[in-house]
């Protein structure tokens, strides 16, 4: 499985890419495989300021539904508009076209507390 080195990860199987104080967030290759065919991503928290671990949305696969947890505190600034029509890009390109939200991070230091690729690979059972 693919866990890019330049990303941070959570135990909830999300990845975080930091650019200044803006973080892009999606679910990992492991998560998309476990869920199977993703058919609906519901995120209605744009503009909201939420604490770390808050539920910011839901991802629905054919057979299962799973909550999305915010990795760190901050304000959600943008949703991936492509997911409404083509949620399957989360399966085909989880770290690229399948990104879910962008957020303004409250404390950038929080990001560095998250797992790196090697630590996450152990969590994902690699």
């Amino acid at each position: 499985m693919n866990f890019p080195k330049d990303l941070r990860y959570t135990k909830d199987h999300e990845w975080i890419r930091l650019d200044g104080d803006v973080a892009t967030i999606g679910i990992t290759d492991f998560a998309q495989r476990e869920l199977g065919d993703i058919v609906y991503v519901e995120i209605e928290t744009a503009g909201k300021t939420l604490e770390a671990e808050s539920v910011f949305g839901t991802v629905e696969a054919v057979k299962t539904v799973s909550d999305l947890f915010l990795p760190v505190a901050g304000t959600i600034t943008e949703l991936n508009p492509a997911l409404a029509a083509t949620p399957e890009v989360v399966n085909s390109d989880p770290y690229g076209e399948g990104w879910m939200i962008k957020m303004k991070v409250k404390n950038v230091a929080d990001i560095h507390e998250l797992m790196d690729a090697d630590a996450y690979a152990a969590v994902a059972g690699e």
Partner: peptide, 20 residues
């Protein structure tokens, strides 16, 4: 196959994906 427990048996849940 993605395997999981069903009715006490280790069973295949999907191979190439449910849609496919």
């Amino acid at each position: 196959a993605k395997m999981a427990e069903f009715a006490g048996y280790l069973m295949p849940i999907s191979y190439s994906g449910i849609n496919d």
